[in-house]
Simulated assay, not measured.
Amino acid sequence: MEKALWYLFAGSRGGPNRVRIVRELTRRPRNANELAEELGLDYNTVTHHLDMLREHGVVESGDHEYGKLYFPTDRFEEHADTFEEIAAEVE
């Protein structure tokens, strides 16, 4: 997981936006539209980042397709300290 976190947040151009998305999701679950509005990002940009985060086990979504909510995974939360370390470098 630590390698995936470094890649997602520090190893690519989208890292800062992914940090912002994860920060919002740790405050409370949200859907892609809510994240786009809250962060001032394009909906397609948010869904791209959510897909990347989901593929690497950082977030998971509910079962409903329309308006599905995203949550940090338990696995991600076990590595929250690593995320904070990386986020401090990216922000």
Rank of each mutant, 00 (worst) to 15 (best):
E2H: 09
N17K: 15
S12R: 15
E55M: 13
R23S: 08
L25V: 09
R30C: 05
L41N: 09
F9R: 00
G57F: 01
V58W: 00
T73I: 06
L39S: 02
L53S: 00
M1W: 04
Y7R: 12
H49A: 11
N33G: 12
E60L: 06
L41M: 15
V59I: 10
N33F: 15
T26C: 09
R27M: 10
D42H: 06
H56V: 08
N31P: 01
V19M: 03
A88G: 05
D42Q: 10
M52W: 04
V59N: 06
F76S: 08
R18W: 01
L50K: 03
E89G: 13
V90R: 10
N31Y: 01
F76R: 03
D74S: 15
Y70D: 02
E37P: 05
D74Q: 14
S12W: 05
L35W: 02
M1F: 10
L41T: 01
L53G: 02
N33I: 11
Y70R: 07
V58N: 00
H48I: 11
H56Y: 12
E85T: 08
L41W: 07
L53P: 01
M1T: 03
R27E: 10
P16T: 02
R27W: 02
D42F: 05
A32M: 01
L8F: 04
L39K: 01
G11V: 06
A87T: 04
L41S: 04
L5C: 08
E65G: 02
N44G: 14
R54M: 11
E78R: 12
D51W: 14
F76W: 05
A36I: 07
E85A: 09
V22W: 05
V46F: 08
R23N: 12
M52K: 13
R28C: 09
V19D: 00
G57I: 05
F71E: 08
T82N: 10
N44H: 13
R23G: 03
L69C: 04
D63T: 14
N33R: 14
L25H: 04
A32S: 11
L25G: 06
L69D: 00
R54A: 10
P72L: 02
R18P: 02
E37W: 07
A10Y: 06
D74N: 15
H79P: 01
T47M: 09
E34N: 04
L35G: 00
E65D: 10
N17D: 15
K68P: 00
W6H: 13
D63N: 12
D81S: 13
E2P: 00
W6Q: 09
H56A: 14
L8Y: 00
A10L: 10
V22G: 04
G67C: 01
G62N: 07
K3E: 15
G67I: 02
V90H: 10
V58Q: 02
T45N: 09
E2M: 07
N17M: 15
V90Q: 07
L41E: 07
L39Q: 06
E84H: 13
E84V: 11
L25Q: 05
H48L: 15
E65H: 04
T47F: 05
E37N: 12
E65C: 08
E91N: 13
A87M: 09
G67Q: 06
A32Q: 03
R75K: 11
M1Y: 07
E60Y: 07
E65K: 10
E37A: 12
E24H: 09
E34Y: 04
I21L: 05
Y43D: 10
E89F: 09
R30I: 03
E38G: 06
E78K: 09
G14R: 07
F9L: 05
I86N: 02
G11N: 07
L50R: 03
